[in-house]
């Protein structure tokens, strides 16, 4: 009966209900907006108070340092090519840290993803445990592991590498597992019906399906890890970040080195972003062709 009466309700009742609904939505939206603006404004004021230099005082000076650095580098422009050569070993080290940690992290992530995906897991009872482990690995900022490892292992690239790999394993593991959840289980069933073991089912039934997506995520992570490896060098040791820190500490007189490192870092990041973007495009295109 209720179903019968509903369409017969007078039009103005519906209109009133609709308008009331819209008003309520607008009010909620408005309250959220006011709340957001209040949070931004008070946050800005608070951050401004706790900063050594104020925002409005600093704003006119924002180009002072860049212009000082560039003008000094301009005078010594002839030295720049030699500096590029000088810093290229540490640049290569930074890229190597990113590459190795992405590789090791991705390998760990594959294992973690496979044991924490429903329908694929080797030990279904432990899925929750492995997921929490990945959450913990993801939550651990690289700087924490890197600084503790520097205390134990001394300087050099290895602490940064382990730190980034650890975080990468957690971050990629989650993404990999989301991809694997959508994998078609028919090949896996087919393989198990002919007596394949767990490793064989994964290697032959799951990995070929998910590999393009996984590689694509891995490349994206590589872009992120190059930046992370540069910044860890600055805070800890190893790679071009460390050279940058030394040059910055020296200050005036070494700004040509600062500029050289800035240029190298910028060029490297853009270069690898482009390559990885191109490869990821090809992977996603190849995949859609395969499905279409």
């Amino acid at each position: 009966m209720a179903d019968m009466t509903a369409p017969m309700a007078p039009v103005d009742t519906i209109a009133r209900a609709y308008l009331a609904d819209v008003r309520r939505k607008r009010m909620y939206g408005g309250i959220l907006l006011v709340l957001f603006i209040a949070m931004m404004a008070s946050g800005f004021r608070l951050a401004n108070e706790r900063n050594a230099g104020g925002f409005w005082d600093g704003l006119p000076q924002i180009f002072d340092f860049p212009s000082e650095v560039v003008s000094e580098a301009w005078e010594k422009a002839a030295l720049l090519p030699a500096l590029f050569v000088k810093f290229s070993p540490s640049l290569i080290e930074t890229v190597n840290i990113a590459a190795v940690s992405t590789m090791i992290g991705a390998l760990l992530a594959v294992l973690l993803a496979l044991v924490s995906t429903r329908g694929l897991a080797r030990w279904p009872a432990l899925i929750g445990l492995f997921r929490r482990a990945m959450d913990g690995m993801r939550a651990m900022p690289e700087i924490v592991i890197a600084l503790v490892l520097i205390y134990i292992l001394g300087g050099g690239p290895v602490p940064a590498m382990i730190a980034i790999a650890f975080h990468t394993a957690g971050a990629l593991g989650k993404l990999f597992s989301e991809v694997a959840e959508n994998a078609d289980l028919k090949p896996v069933e087919g393989l198990s019906s002919v007596g394949a073991g767990w490793l064989q089912r994964m290697w032959l039934g799951v990995i070929p399906q998910v590999a393009p997506n996984w590689i694509s995520y891995g490349l994206l992570r590589f872009e992120i890890n190059i930046r992370a490896s540069a910044i860890l060098g600055f805070v800890g040791s190893g790679g071009i970040g460390y050279d940058l820190k030394l040059a910055m500490q020296w200050g005036q007189g070494r700004y040509d080195q600062v500029v050289a490192i800035f240029i190298l870092l910028f060029a490297t990041i853009v270069f690898f972003d482009q390559i990885s973007g191109y490869l990821r495009n090809r992977l996603s295109k190849g995949q859609s062709n395969g499905h279409g």
Partner: peptide, 28 residues
């Protein structure tokens, strides 16, 4: 592309020269 390529590390260094140490610089 330029802003992304310059990257957080370099921005942090440049901005901390203008605004001094503190949370505002990090936020910027």
């Amino acid at each position: 592309d330029f802003v992304r390529g310059v990257d957080g590390l370099i921005w942090t260094i440049i901005l901390s020269r203008a605004f001094g140490p503190g949370p505002m610089t990090g936020a910027l």
